[in-house]
Nucleic acid binder design. Structure first.
Length: 199
DNA sequence: CCGCGGATCTTCT
DNA sequence: GAAGATCCGCGGA
């Protein structure tokens, strides 16, 4: 790990993810997403997430039971779940809950911190800085994350989450975006006052 | 600024 | 074969 990445605080340990999905989701707001490869560090503060529950949540990919795609949602926590949406975009999730129980947190928006020039290169159509990462597929593009990072270890791999400054973020709670089933559940958590939310 | 529809492909029925 | 946890460009106001 580079000295620069250390400035974001320690990497969150696997136990962080081995809790109830909603608890992890709330705790993730304000943390720092880091993608490091070939010496290039891309980082951003997490400002928006959504929880997808393993049980009683028909909007979750795990709702249909184990399939080849979703098997690791039921496995050990602290791994990435990346999938392709609408044929051309990628979404990044973090596997939660103890081994054997499904549950994940969808990352929806971050505030750019480090490697912003690289983000502009990977998202040349963005107009303002907030357009770089203010959506689940925008931020994966800006961070260079795709299926190659699926099943990656968030504790020891190139995609990690660091603890951040430690100040407890003020949260707003709302309904999840872009889903039909169980759309009324209050499972979207956003950093109050952030200018980098998806909508 | 807003609403509409096209793009494009993985996954499961 | 159809749907989908989205983004972007276009047209109109």
């Amino acid at each position: 790990m580079s000295a620069r990445a250390d400035a974001f605080g320690p990497v969150l340990p696997r136990e962080f993810y081995a809790r109830k999905t909603v608890r992890v989701a709330r705790d993730l707001v304000g943390r720092v997403l880091v993608h490091e490869r070939e010496g290039e560090v891309t980082a951003g503060r997490i400002v928006e997430v959504e929880a997808y529950l393993g049980q009683g949540d028909r909007a979750a990919h795990s709702a249909a039971g184990r399939t080849p795609r979703t098997a690791h949602l039921f496995g050990e926590p602290g791994y990435a779940y990346v999938y392709v949406i609408y044929g051309m975009h990628h979404c990044l999730n973090f596997v939660c809950e103890p081994d054997g129980t499904a549950g994940c947190v969808l990352l929806r928006a971050v505030e750019p911190m480090t490697g912003v020039a690289g983000m502009w290169e990977r998202r040349p159509k963005a107009r303002r800085e907030k357009d770089l990462t203010s959506g689940p597929a925008k931020l994966t593009a800006a961070f260079g994350i795709d299926l190659g990072q699926n099943k990656g270890d968030l504790v020891s791999g190139p995609v990690r989450i660091h603890a951040g400054a430690g100040k407890r973020a003020r949260l707003d709670v709302s309904e999840r975006i872009g889903i039909r089933e169980d759309a009324e559940l209050p499972l979207r958590f956003t950093m109050r006052g952030s200018q980098f939310l998806s909508r």
